[in-house]
Write a protein that binds this DNA or RNA. Sequence first.
DNA 1: CGTAATACG
Length: 254
Amino acid sequence: MKITTWNVNGFRAVLRKNAFEWIPDVDPDVLCFQEIKATLDQISAEEAIIEPYEGIWNPAERKGYSGTATYYKNKPLSHEKGFGIEHFDIEGRVIRLKYPDFYLYNIYFPNGGEGNKRVPYKLEFYEAFLEICDDLHAQGENIIITGDFNTAHQEIDLANPKQNEKNTGFLPEERVWIDRYLEHGFKDAYRELYPEEEKYTWWTYRFNSRERDIGWRLDYYLVSDALMDRVEDVVIHSDIMGSDHCPVSLILKE
DNA sequence: CGTAATACG
């Protein structure tokens, strides 16, 4: 089974750029998109279709902002949008699919904002979601979390760690939440397999950053400890264009 | 700089 995550930074922008063309080549079983920045009524029915997938959209209430969509080949046992907490759910950040062996969460974690204004909301979101994961783990369930975490975990996860210690995305109080997830029964699948690799998944559109590879690793797969032996590979598709993020795939053994 | 609506990342 192959799962691919991609922060599209505007579903309509990706359509305009014809930038979904890589999908048949990568051929994921599930596609997790973040920052769709659209509702279904802003595009045609045809534009929402990605063959041969079926899609679930969870847009934010606010126009042109945030939002997630998950496309799958094989129908999950069930699916839910949000986590039942109003002030988080209105931003369309969460879609959960239930498969026989695990829950798959597609999540667009909050950005800390200009002047770190939204860091408190972001930290609350990490906290609330970890509690949900704790409950599921306590029930013996396995979980795969993927999406844009909006935080680089360690110095190895961004090109310029020193100069970003006071910027959202690399604040100590944000990074410690990734530590907490790992302490609560998750593995960072990419880092487990590639402890020394310096590869990024996001580059600002400014300053020619992508060409110069001045980036951050913000898009992760956190998998329950018990699932780690089923992880065959994690692939960062650095060459796939169309957004300021690149797609990342998780390949699971059956 | 880019996406999208006048803010946000």
